[in-house]
Structure formats: structure tokens, C-alpha cells
């Protein structure tokens, strides 16, 4: 060590810096990643909707009125009127026919207003859209009437385009958004899976649309895709492994929304 004292100060400083760096190089390897948490697992925020997935379920009618006060005052009367109308829709009309009715047109206007609002309003719009999917018929059937599924799919796609990235980090919206993605895959598949064969162009377009939702600009999994992987492990890999990328999501949607298959059963 004494000969060290004879060296230039810069050399001694470099020696100690290198020693510190060697130590740091070994120590950083022990840094552990944070726990695997879904946004919905984070601490509850004050004023957030409790158990938002219940509002997308079969018994949503029991809680939907909780959202009345969360919707903008200007939209509230229309919201209250339409939620009653939708939650009491009789006879399972075709989705396209109902959307063309006066209530359907009002719903589309309200839905788009809610989609552009805050996260409570976004959830309110999603609740209505899911109920429309449950109470109207969009199953193409043997005659391949895909227009109903297409219109429903377009509404879901618009909501996801607006909210997927933000919802992926939102404790209130993450689970409903992911559930909507799965349901969207189910509805989208209805537009291209035929009784015999499938519409390849439509399938490729759908796969591309989902890729845009689940990948960032560098082709890496987006925040939304990572949230999906945390909430539904293996689904993203399942999409890669199958020729029909949406099939895995459709299967998961079947488990999450039993009976919601476009036939009002």
C-alpha cells in the first residue's frame, strides 16, 4: 500500500472509483423486481367505484344506479333514461336494428360523449355497451349476418382505442377494460368465423387491430398487453401460438362472460 501514496492523485482516485464500481457491479445483480401486481391490486383510491367488474356482470342492474351521480349533470338525464331502457330491453332485438331505433341512436350519441369524458363516465359507457351486447342479438348465424357484430365491435374498438393505455394503469378501469378486450375478441371473431371457413381479410384486419392495442411502436408489448398478461397469464402467449390470434381471447371471454354469445341466452 505505501507505494500507492507515491502515485498521482488521479490514479489513486481512479483505483478507488474502480473498486466502488466493481462492488456496485456485483451488488446491482441482487436488485429484485417489484411484486407482480395488477392495477386493480393497488391501494384503493378514495371515491373509486368498488368492484367495477360487477357492473359488467349479469347482475349489473342491481348496482348500475350507483353511477348516476358520477355522470356529468348535462348527460345525467339521458343516461338515466337510457340505462333504464337498455337494462329492460325486451325480446332480444338484432343489434343493428336496435341501434337504428331512436333509443339506439341516442345510445350511440351518449356512448361517444361518455367515452370522451372522465374515467367514471368511461366506465358508465362501458356498462351500457356490455349490456347492449348481452341483451341484443349479434350472432351471425347460418346466413352470416355479420353487420350486427360489426357495429357492436366498432363501438368496443372505439372505447378501447380511447381508454386502453390509460385504463392499463387505472385501478378502477383496468379490469373492465381487459374484460372488454376479451369480449371484443369474441364479437370480432363472430364477424369472420363462418359456419364453414372464415373471412381471411376480415380476420387479418382484426388481428392487426388487436396488435395495435397490444404492441407499442417498437413491436414490444404495450402497457395494456402487460396488464393483460398479469391479469390473465398465458393469454398473450396463447395469441402468439395460434393461427387465429383472437381465439385464445375468445375462449377467455367465454369463461368471463358465460352465456354472452350474441344469442341473448
Amino acid at each position: 500500500m505505501p507505494e500507492l501514496l507515491e502515485k498521482p492523485t488521479g490514479t489513486v482516485a481512479a483505483l478507488f472509483a474502480a473498486l466502488a464500481l466493481f462492488g456496485a457491479s456485483v451488488a446491482v445483480r441482487a436488485i429484485d423486481g417489484g411484486p407482480l401486481l395488477s392495477p386493480a391490486d393497488r391501494d384503493r383510491e378514495r371515491g373509486a367505484v368498488q368492484e367495477p367488474m360487477q357492473l359488467l356482470g349479469r347482475s349489473a342492474s342491481a348496482r348500475v344506479s350507483e353511477l348516476d351521480l358520477r355522470v356529468n349533470k348535462e348527460l345525467r338525464p339521458e343516461w338515466m333514461r337510457l340505462r333504464k331502457a337498455i337494462f329492460q330491453l325486451p325480446r332480444c332485438p338484432r343489434t343493428g336494428e336496435w341501434l337504428d331505433s331512436s333509443d339506439g341512436l341516442a345510445f350511440e350519441r351518449l356512448f361517444n360523449e361518455l367515452r370522451r369524458g372522465n374515467r367514471d363516465e368511461a366506465l358508465a359507457g362501458l356498462v351500457l355497451l356490455t349490456e347492449v351486447a348481452r341483451r341484443t342479438e349479434w350472432e351471425p348465424g347460418l346466413l352470416a349476418r355479420v353487420q350486427d357484430a360489426e357495429r357492436l365491435s366498432n363501438l368496443q374498438s372505439e372505447w378501447l382505442r380511447t381508454w386502453s393505455a390509460r385504463a392499463a394503469q387505472d385501478a378502477q378501469l383496468s379490469d373492465p377494460a381487459l374484460a372488454t378486450l376479451l369480449l371484443h375478441a369474441r364479437v370480432e371473431r363472430a364477424t369472420y368465423v363462418r359456419t364453414i371457413g372464415r373471412d381471411r381479410d376480415r380476420q387479418e384486419r382484426a388481428a392487426e387491430a388487436f396488435r395495435r392495442l397490444l404492441e407499442d411502436t417498437q413491436g414490444q408489448p404495450s402497457v395494456f398487453a402487460r396488464a393483460l398478461d398479469v391479469r390473465h397469464p398465458g393469454l398473450v402467449t396463447g395469441m402468439r401460438d395460434r393461427k387465429d390470434a383472437l381465439e385464445a381471447l375468445d375462449t377467455a371471454a367465454g369463461q368471463l362472460f358465460p352465456g354472452l354469445n350474441g344469442e341473448c341466452k
Partner: peptide, 19 residues
């Protein structure tokens, strides 16, 4: 010594990843 410091910086970067 400076070469060793360079090795240390390289080792530090090789010991990290971003999640």
C-alpha cells in the same frame, strides 16, 4: 486504473435489466 474503472462501468451495465 482508468481501464479498470471502464470495466467496472461495463460490469454495472451488464448486471442490470429494465422490467
Amino acid at each position: 486504473m482508468f481501464a479498470c474503472a471502464l470495466i467496472g462501468v461495463g460490469g454495472l451495465l451488464l448486471g442490470l435489466q429494465v422490467d
